[in-house]
Simulated assay, not measured.
Amino acid sequence: MSLNAYDGILLSSFGGPEGQEDVIPFLKNVTRGTGVPEERLEEVAHHYRAHNGVSPLNEQNRQLRAALEAELAARGIDLPVYWANRNWSPYFAEAVTEAHAHGHRRLLALVTSAYTSYSGVDQYREDFVRCLDETGLSDEVSIDRIREYFDHPGFVTPFVEGIRDAVALLTDEGAASRIHVLFSTHSIPDSAALASGPEFGPGGAYVAQHRAVAGYLSEEAAPGIPWSLVYQSRSGPPSQPWLEPDINEAIAELAEMEYTAVIIVPLGFVSDHMEVIWDLDTEAMATAREHGLAAVRVPTPGTHPAFVSGLVDLVIERATEAAWADRAAVSALGAWPDHDRVGARTIQPQTA
């Protein structure tokens, strides 16, 4: 299959440290310009230090890159996959310079963020603009990105399977008399959530998208079981309103309501990076144990075949400018719009 609109894929992610000496420099990259004090960085640093200073995200992205290459090859699509990060090497400038050196000029970014928010959408666009400016390639290289895929079947299917497995496990263990499903995502400031799409009301598009997917998953994988949307990984000052409730507070309240088990669904996350394995697998699971609740954490999409296949479907959708009716989406919100191109806008797709 020939996708003449693009000649390379840019797998774009957050990044993470690769050793103890990288932890503080990485966190300074993440918080650059925000005024976060050193003592707060040290608080977060111990999450990474407990894992030898290594973020699992980088290895997960290496595996995702390999899985994408295999899926593209299986479909006969000849597109190289470059991998780059916002906050740690390989940086965007490194990957784009490499792609340019190999003769590639029309890149399509696969961003490891499924929802609409500043950090998941606008900040990546800013990264791409800055990268092309820094490398001097703004007139030669263009970068498009796939749309938000929060309700694409490829992203949703792994959660459906995981929730069903969790219900079955808790049932087999005799803990299913009163289950509650907690769909967890990253908390962001209320103001940032509203800015993601004011037309959706309080919480903006960010909350609306999560609620839409959670509702679908509940009906598809756990009908009749109550659910809540909860938040994790808050990092702002106490004086600034952020999305609530916190997952740990929600677990404590469920225990008081005499629930016997919780299923934790990391709905806002693509892979098992540090905020999943620390905030959920460590802290939230400890809170559940403390309150006598059985708990199961559902896997993230990671390199699940449906997710990898879905990303390639999204590449084809964007490259072929698929009709709106042909764009896959499982929620009532439907497929999200495409994003404008960054960079060499005058470049036209080559003909075969």
Results as ranks from 00 to 15, higher is better:
7 D>Q: 09
9 I>H: 01
11 L>F: 02
14 F>P: 05
15 G>A: 04
18 E>T: 15
21 E>W: 15
21 E>K: 15
24 I>F: 11
34 T>F: 03
35 G>A: 14
35 G>T: 08
36 V>K: 07
37 P>N: 03
43 E>Y: 08
48 Y>S: 08
51 H>E: 09
57 L>A: 11
62 R>Y: 08
63 Q>R: 15
67 A>M: 10
75 R>D: 01
81 V>C: 06
81 V>L: 08
81 V>T: 05
87 N>V: 04
87 N>H: 09
88 W>R: 00
93 A>T: 15
98 E>F: 00
98 E>S: 09
102 H>V: 14
110 L>P: 01
113 S>F: 10
117 S>D: 10
124 Y>H: 07
125 R>H: 09
126 E>M: 14
128 F>N: 06
139 D>I: 10
144 D>W: 00
150 F>G: 00
161 E>N: 07
163 I>V: 12
166 A>E: 00
179 I>H: 05
179 I>M: 08
184 S>T: 06
185 T>R: 08
189 P>F: 09
192 A>L: 10
192 A>F: 06
197 G>Y: 05
206 Y>M: 12
215 G>L: 13
225 I>A: 06
226 P>S: 09
227 W>C: 12
232 Q>K: 09
233 S>V: 14
243 L>S: 04
245 P>N: 11
248 N>I: 14
248 N>L: 14
251 I>C: 04
251 I>Y: 04
253 E>W: 06
258 E>R: 00
260 T>K: 09
263 I>T: 05
263 I>S: 02
270 V>N: 01
271 S>Q: 03
277 I>D: 06
278 W>A: 01
281 D>R: 00
286 A>W: 03
290 E>I: 09
291 H>G: 04
295 A>N: 07
297 R>A: 08
300 T>H: 03
300 T>P: 01
302 G>K: 11
302 G>I: 01
305 P>N: 12
310 G>Y: 02
317 E>C: 15
318 R>I: 13
318 R>M: 08
326 D>T: 15
327 R>S: 04
328 A>Y: 04
329 A>K: 07
336 W>L: 02
339 H>G: 04
343 G>R: 07
350 Q>S: 14
